[in-house]
């Protein structure tokens, strides 16, 4: 049964996780993009978002309950689809972008009558 305490824990943990992701980005911008690398911040904020997702799933959506097993099964299969859609799209489009020169893209678009 959800209690006041579980919501409070989820709320405080979420605030901390948001600030933990927000502050490095602001520090990075304030230092004129010198402090901390892009790749590091990108990885860190995505990791923090995933941790926050788990926190909210447990404390706000109560997926820790014993009768929510099928909810979890459904969630995991959906996350599988989400990862295929998002990572697949990004992968295909960046490889396409990398393996065609801008001249090739211009020629292709001219052939298609885009210009």
């Amino acid at each position: 049964m959800p209690t006041f305490k579980s919501y409070l824990i989820g709320y405080i943990a979420s605030i901390l996780l948001i600030l933990l992701a927000y502050l490095p980005v602001q520090i990075h911008l304030a230092s004129g993009h010198r402090l901390l690398s892009h790749g590091f911040i990108m990885g860190a904020v995505i990791l923090l978002a995933i941790v926050q997702m788990i926190v909210q799933l447990i404390f706000f959506l109560h997926l820790g309950n014993k009768n929510s097993r099928w909810n979890i099964v459904f969630l995991i299969s959906t996350i599988g689809i989400v990862l295929i859609v998002v990572a697949g799209s990004v992968w295909i489009m960046t490889s396409l972008n990398n393996s065609m020169s801008s001249q090739q893209i211009d020629n292709y678009m001219q052939d298609q009558g885009s210009f």
Binding site: S14, A21, I46, A49, Q56, L61
Partner: peptide, 11 residues
């Protein structure tokens, strides 16, 4: 919806 927003905020 709050959970989806966390990903919009991040990404």
């Amino acid at each position: 919806l709050d959970l989806v927003w966390i990903f919009i905020f991040t990404i």
